[in-house]
Computed example of a mutant assay.
Amino acid sequence: MKRRSIIKSFAAAGMLAAVGACAQMDDGDDIVDIASSNPDFSTLTAAIGAAGLTDTLRGPGPFTVFAPTNAAFDALPAGTLDMLLMPENKDKLASILTYHVVPGAVTSDQILGKRMNVATVQGDTVRVDGTGGKYGAAVRVNDANVTNADIMATNGVIHVIDKVLLP
């Protein structure tokens, strides 16, 4: 009897998580609006436009975006960003940017204390490590640090990272 109750509890929790992941907020800004309004994401916003991903990231989602700052893009080898922004490299840029996007809205409370490989929209996986760091709770995505978590958008969530993820 206890086993059946445990299974029902897990099933109910799973249903609640699925409904919560699909829920949309009615008011507010989408992922692109938030990125566009923050000067620390001006390079990311330009790259999203150059890759033709603006409409996608304005879509219903939900999406989780690991968003590199301007400083993260500046840390790429010299000339890399300029090369990626060229029209002939649109597909490569789109591949890199969609590597930063995970389907569903994943908040920090779902990550903390866990290590997992997560499939990206691009098709590869990223390694998410929320087991903490030397000075308390910390989350890493591959070799990037999450510096600001849970920026909620109408179509998902943004986590700010300090490096550009390369597939």
Rank of each mutant, 00 (worst) to 15 (best):
D74S: 15
D74R: 13
A149K: 09
S95N: 11
N70H: 10
G14C: 05
L93Q: 06
A47T: 13
D109V: 01
S9P: 01
A47R: 08
P39E: 13
G49I: 11
K163H: 08
T107M: 10
L97G: 00
L93C: 06
P77I: 11
A47G: 07
T98E: 10
I48A: 01
T80Q: 11
I158L: 10
T154I: 03
A21S: 15
I111W: 05
G49E: 04
Q110A: 05
D40E: 14
V139W: 04
M25S: 12
F66Q: 07
V106P: 01
V19E: 09
D143C: 08
S37H: 11
I161P: 03
I151P: 00
V32T: 03
K134G: 00
D27C: 04
D29Y: 14
G133F: 06
H100V: 11
A138P: 06
I48R: 10
C22F: 15
M15G: 14
S36K: 14
Q110F: 03
K114W: 06
V121S: 07
V160K: 14
T80I: 10
M25Q: 12
R115I: 12
V118K: 13
D33M: 05
P39H: 11
D33P: 12
A17N: 12
N142V: 12
L84D: 05
D74L: 12
G130R: 05
G49H: 05
A72E: 09
N145H: 10
T64L: 05
V128M: 07
N145M: 09
A67Q: 12
T147A: 07
A12M: 06
L44K: 07
Q122K: 11
A71E: 10
G14F: 07
T64M: 04
M1R: 15
L57Y: 08
E88Q: 11
L84T: 00
G52V: 12
N117D: 13
N155T: 03
A12H: 07
L97T: 07
Y99D: 08
G61V: 02
G130F: 00
T56G: 08
I161W: 07
G79R: 11
G123S: 08
L76H: 09
R140P: 08
L166I: 12
L57N: 04
D40P: 13
I31E: 00
N145W: 09
K114L: 00
P167M: 04
G132W: 06
G156F: 07
L165Q: 08
D33Y: 14
L76A: 11
V157F: 06
Q110N: 01
D26N: 10
I111Y: 00
A18D: 08
S37I: 02
D26R: 09
I96G: 02
G20D: 05
V19G: 03
F63M: 02
A13H: 10
M116G: 06
M152I: 15
L53H: 03
S95V: 13
A23V: 04
S5D: 13
A47D: 07
A75N: 13
G14E: 02
D29F: 14
V19T: 14
D150F: 04
V128K: 10
D27A: 08
A94F: 01
A21F: 14
I151C: 05
P103S: 14
T43Q: 03
A35Q: 03
